[in-house]
Design a protein around this nucleic acid. Structure first.
Length: 415
RNA sequence: GGAGGGAUGCCCGAGUGGCUAAAGGGGACGGACUGUAAAUCCGUUGACUACGUCUACGGUGGUUCGAAUCCACCUCCCUCCA
């Protein structure tokens, strides 16, 4: 990772201090631009799913910080590119989504991040743009003449993304080859429409970003900029944001605020300081204090991280509630309300309940969980898979608690 | 258009007629140790009305007492040549 230059502008100074800086196309010029004017900047997101996940969080935080520094963030949704179907996933041909699905995805994504960014018409309000607006209308020959002529195949062949494939004798479709052209074109289009001069992205998109900058110079004689963030991995090397249940989604209907809080609470020791800088807005002095905590005390720092990160995504109230629920569930062993809750008709077999609660995918899995001594009913291990649970298991609040392992708890309410 | 190669469980990947619900690895889950961490060790990892039954090695048929393994056709993917 290149060392971050000493920036003068508020935004870049913060950006670098928070560990979000990886590389920049023209650091001095961009710094000057930030110091001089309100900058419009964009980051592109795929809209194949109805929610973004934690993997996009560094980018979203970049937009948030831009906004806080008084600049204008653009959230570019790849509605157009999604229609073509991104082939880069290698084997499985991705299903091509209908325009209706894409539209629904966009709205859901937007809803999921409403605490993170303020959208609107104000000078530094975020705007949502869909590249289908222009990509859909492209005509092949005019596009080739106006845009295609600026791309040298010779140079495209040297781009890492392409070169790697060719070196390994892996296939690269023409569509895929064109992806970077479309992405480059997005940048120019956003410059024309919104005066957008900066594209931010993960470091893996560097080639595409540079193509856009190049195209801007050729077509518009404009100086555009690229700013990338590092790829975030956990200190043990895993890609961040994957857990048992799959991706850690940002939308509350996919991953509840409580589970989201838990995700951050379970951060590895070595990542606490780094994540506090990247994913919260606590002052540096506070972070410096927290990351120095040793041993079990570091857990306090993780709780702060969890609450702060959850507050940014779901709001302060939801974050505090999640923290409180966790405290009661883990530290007092209570079946705190606020835990994920299901309703069921009692009496019912323990296997059915475990499956209904999402603690096991099938009866077989539930049996195995019991065989491994991992399923608990009201904090007591269940040993008999044929156990029938009736109303006598309910506690004074009229619920019972089922747990898989030490961390996953679900409340069951009688229907 | 021609010639080859391939498709195995969540993923990678062995397996070329019975010993195969399918080696090994990864991942995941549970247990132990801990601090709701990491590392390590142990166990589990197709389903079900569960010492049994059913379903499974791209699809459909066939050969055989018996097929992931052999044959035919089909689908998809890849490589090379033109």
């Amino acid at each position: 990772m290149p060392a971050a230059p000493a920036f003068q502008s508020e935004f870049l100074k913060t950006f670098a201090a928070r560990g979000a800086y990886y590389d920049c196309s023209a650091p001095q010029d961009l710094d000057a631009l930030f110091a001089k004017e309100r900058v419009t900047a964009y980051i592109g997101f795929d809209c194949t799913a109805d929610s973004l996940h934690v993997g996009s969080l560094v980018q979203l935080m970049t937009l948030r910080r831009l906004q806080q520094a008084g600049h204008r963030p653009i959230l570019l949704m790849g509605g157009g590119t999604t229609k073509a179907g991104d082939p880069s996933g290698k084997d499985e041909t991705r299903l091509i989504l209908t325009p209706e699905q894409i539209e629904a995805n966009k709205q859901n994504i937007l809803g999921g991040i409403r605490h993170l960014l303020k959208f609107g018409d104000g000078p530094s309000d975020a705007i949502l743009v869909d590249n289908a607006e222009w990509l859909d209308k492209l005509e092949y020959i005019p596009f080739l003449r106006d845009v295609g002529r600026h791309f040298s195949v010779n140079r495209m062949l040297t781009m890492d993304s392409v070169k790697l494939r060719l070196d390994r004798d892996q296939p690269l479709s023409f569509l895929e080859f064109n992806y970077s052209i479309m992405q480059a074109y997005d940048f120019v289009e956003l410059y024309k429409r919104y005066g957008c001069k900066l594209q931010s992205s993960g470091s893996d998109q560097w080639g595409n970003v540079v193509s856009g900058i190049d195209l801007g110079r050729r077509m518009q004689s404009a100086q555009l900029f690229g700013l990338t963030t590092p790829l975030i991995t956990t200190s043990s090397g895993a890609k961040m944001g994957k857990t048992s249940a799959g991706a850690v989604w940002l939308n509350a209907n996919r991953v509840s605020p409580y589970d989201y809080w838990q995700f951050w609470r379970n951060t590895e020791d070595g990542d606490v300081g780094r994540f506090l800088r990247l994913f919260t807005e606590l002052p540096e002095a506070e972070i410096a204090r927290l990351e120095k905590l040793q041993g079990a005390e570091l857990n306090d720092a993780k709780k702060v991280l969890a609450t702060e990160a959850t507050a940014i995504l779901h709001g302060r109230e939801a974050a505090d509630k999640a923290g409180d629920t966790a405290r009661r569930a883990f530290e007092e062993g209570a079946s705190a309300d606020g835990l994920p809750t299901i309703t069921a008709t009692l009496p019912d077999g323990i296997l059915n309940l475990a499956v209904a609660a999402g603690l096991a995918a099938s009866n077989s899995e539930a049996r195995k969980l019991i065989a491994n001594n991992g399923l608990k009913l009201n904090d007591t291990s269940v040993s008999d898979p044929k156990l029938t649970v009736d109303a006598s298991a309910l506690n004074s609040d009229g619920v019972l608690k089922l747990s898989s392992g030490k961390k996953k708890h679900v409340l069951v309410k009688p229907a």
